[in-house]
Design a protein around this nucleic acid. Structure first.
Lengths: 134, 134
DNA sequence: CTTGCCCTTCCAGTCACTGGAAGCTTAAAT
DNA sequence: ATTTAAGCTTCCAGTGACTGGAAGGGCAAG
C-alpha cells in the first residue's frame, strides 16, 4: 500500500512517517516500481506501535529502543521495564513541577481583582519573584 | 554594566539576554564606547521580571505582553489577569494530561514482572494501544 | 487532455534557547 | 612590555519532533 493508506491505518501523517524514516526510527520502506513507498501490514503494525509509544510520551529515541525490543524475541522484560520506569519517573517529576506552578499561578490570579484599576498583584508578584518560594 | 554582570544579577545567561534582544522581547541595550552592551539597574530589573515570568511557564510572547503591561502605568489589572488565567488553565490541562499518562504508565509498569523472560506486558500494551482508554 | 489527487524530494519554520567559531577589547600577571 | 585569560561582539548551526510549502512526476476518471 502507498504511504497515504499506511498513514490512514496507522494514525500517523504521511509527513511524520517520512520523518521517522529519515531519522532512522523506522527502517526505510520498500519501494514500488514507480518509486512510491510500499507498506505491508507488518509495517503498519510497527507504525501503530510507534504512535502508541509516542502517545505515551516516550521520546523518539525511547521509541526506537522500545521498537527494537519489540522486534527482539529474546529480549528481557527488565530492559523494557527500565525504560518505562525512567519515563514514568520523568512524568511524575513534571507533574510535581506543574502542580507547584499551578499553585503559584492560582494564588496570583485569585489575588488580582481584575478590574480597570492599574494595580495588579500578578505583575507585582512576578517582579518580586514569587515563584522562588517553590 | 556589561552583559556578564547583568546576566549574573538577573539570573539569565548572557546568551539568553542577547537572544531576548534579537527577538524583540526586550529593547536593544545601550552601547558603551567600545561597542559593548551597557545595562542599568532598571534593565536588570526588567530582565529579572522576564526570568520570573518565564519561570512561571509563560511563553516568551506572553512575557512580552506582561512586560508591556508592567511598564504601562495605566494598564488595567483585568488585562493581566486574563493572560494569567489562560496560562493557568493551560497548565491545568497539561497536568490532567500527564496524570492520565502516569496512570497508564504506572499500570503497565506494575504489570511487568521485569525479569530475564521475554514476555512483557508493557510492549504488548503499547502494541495494542493501551493509551486509547484515556 | 485535463483535472485533481497522490506521490517524490528538499528547504524552511516552529520554540526557546544553547554551543561554537572567529575576531575584537580589556584587565591582570609576569 | 608582553603574554595570557577573560569577556565582549556577530553570525551560523543544532536541539526535538514535527509541520508547511514549493516544485515536479504519476495515475485514474471524466
Amino acid at each position: 500500500m502507498n504511504i497515504g493508506e499506511a498513514a490512514r491505518r496507522s494514525g500517523l501523517s504521511a509527513k511524520t512517517i517520512r520523518y521517522y524514516e529519515d531519522t532512522g526510527l523506522i527502517a526505510p520502506a520498500a519501494r514500488a516500481e514507480n518509486g512510491y513507498r510500499d507498506y505491508s501490514d507488518t509495517d503498519v503494525h510497527k507504525l501503530r506501535f510507534v504512535r502508541h509509544a509516542r502517545g505515551l510520551g516516550f521520546s523518539v529515541d525511547e521509541c526506537s529502543q522500545l521498537l527494537s525490543l519489540y522486534q527482539d524475541k529474546t529480549r528481557q522484560s527488565a530492559d523494557v521495564k527500565a525504560i518505562a520506569e525512567k519515563h514514568l519517573s520523568d512524568v511524575e517529576d513534571k507533574i510535581r513541577e506543574l502542580e507547584e506552578l499551578r499553585n503559584t499561578l492560582s494564588h496570583l490570579v485569585t489575588c488580582c481583582h481584575g478590574d480597570t484599576r492599574p494595580d495588579c498583584p500578578i505583575l507585582e508578584g512576578i517582579a518580586e519573584g514569587v515563584e522562588e518560594k517553590a
